[in-house]
């Protein structure tokens, strides 16, 4: 028997450009971003939302969400949650501030030690999830409350207050400020955090789409048994992502403490859900295996626009979270709908 001629099944329709587009995880978020942007540009009462100054404002609000939301998205694609990411931003900022003010280490050594600490937290999260086999939701929830307690308790013991202040008196603060908390593009004053956000987006997108590790991220979240059977190191992949998420939280903590020159013990608590919202709005499946870094970046943009846009529209900012809730639900609904259409009704 020779090789049979490859037969074309007449029932397989050539995937159109539209189908290919619909298959992208971030499409729903992109549509949402356009809608939200238009909404706030129209209802803006200050006349600045749609200007470069307005952009500098909302990208600032978006960047501090996006820096952590992107690794959270990668982790979610790999099928895991990290609920401790928000409070770890606080822990990192507090640690960095305390090392610099209470132990006079100088700002750069403090920053390096903060990253080492965050990596250790990520490693503990990852190891506990992998070793116990418990859901990461539970393990990182426990880490969330533990860190929250430590943040408050330790800060009170060491400073007798609930904040660390005077970070700007540490050695090397000026150079750290240039890297983590400066501005650029003079009259509009974009925050440097926006650059960090874009860098994280580019690196994450590259890793996800163009590297072997990116392939593994999708595989361990899509079907960890199949991944293991084909020789993917499931454990290593997931633990690496937990560490990456913690490092991103530390980066944001360092940015915060240097920008404000101080840190509150309660900083970051509740933010973990903002990151998850950004990732989910951006098209990540809660069950893993699907999503993108650009999607999370668009999700973060929507959240940034909402925070700034509601204030610019003269509405009471108390309503911001209602808006986020509605956006989350609508985005997931749209994503599920187009996802189902594009995938051919299969998961």
């Amino acid at each position: 028997m020779t090789t049979p001629p490859a037969k074309v099944d007449e029932r397989i329709v050539q995937a159109s450009r539209l189908t290919r587009l619909l298959r992208r995880p971030e499409l729903g978020a992109l549509i949402g971003a356009v809608v939200v942007y238009t909404l706030f540009a129209v209802s803006d009462r200050t006349g600045t939302f749609a200007t470069i100054t307005g952009t500098a404002n909302w990208t600032d609000a978006a960047s501090v969400v996006g820096i952590v939301a992107i690794p959270v998205a990668l982790l979610m694609i790999a099928g895991e949650f990290d609920l401790s990411s928000g409070v770890l931003v606080g822990s990192s900022g507090l640690l960095c501030g305390m090392l610099a003010t209470q132990y006079h280490l100088g700002i750069w050594p403090s920053i390096i030690l903060t990253f080492v600490f965050a990596a250790a937290i990520g490693l503990i999260n990852g190891w506990l999830v992998m070793l116990t086999g418990l859901p990461s939701f539970i393990v990182t929830l426990a880490m969330f409350f533990s860190l929250r307690g430590i943040n408050l308790g330790l800060t009170k013991v060491l400073t007798d207050t609930v904040r660390v202040a005077g970070v700007d008196k540490a050695d090397g603060f000026a150079s750290a400020q240039a890297v983590f908390a400066s501005t650029f593009w003079a009259p509009y004053n974009f925050k440097i955090a926006v650059i960090w956000w874009l860098v994280v987006t580019v690196i994450a997108t590259f890793v996800l789409t163009k590297t072997r590790f990116g392939n593994w991220i999708y595989a361990v979240g899509g079907d960890s048994n199949a991944a293991r059977n084909t020789g993917v190191p499931v454990r290593r992949t997931k633990i690496t992502l937990f560490v990456t998420t913690s490092l991103a939280a530390a980066l944001l903590g360092v940015i915060d403490v240097i920008r404000f020159k101080s840190m509150q013990a309660g900083q970051g608590v509740g933010e973990e859900f903002t990151y998850i919202i950004a990732a989910v709005v951006g098209g990540c499946l809660l069950t893993g295996g699907f999503g993108s870094a650009i999607g999370a970046t668009i999700g973060a943009s929507i959240i940034g626009m909402a925070f700034i846009g509601i204030a610019f529209a003269g509405w009471n900012t108390d309503w911001t979270f209602l808006f986020l809730g509605v956006i989350l639900f609508a985005a997931v609904l749209v994503n599920t709908f187009i996802g189902r259409r594009a995938q051919g009704a299969k998961k």
């Binding site: 072997r212 392939n215 593994w216 999708y218 595989a219 899509g222 079907d223 048994n225 199949a226 991944a227 059977n229 084909t230 020789g231 993917v232 499946l285 295996g289 699907f290 995938q343 299969k346 998961k347």
Partner: peptide, 23 residues
Amino acid sequence: TVYQDLATVPLMSVWRNFFLGNE
């Protein structure tokens, strides 16, 4: 060994599945 249901990751593209673990 090709197991009945444990061989591929459904949401990943054909070529990514083909090279999974040996990219």
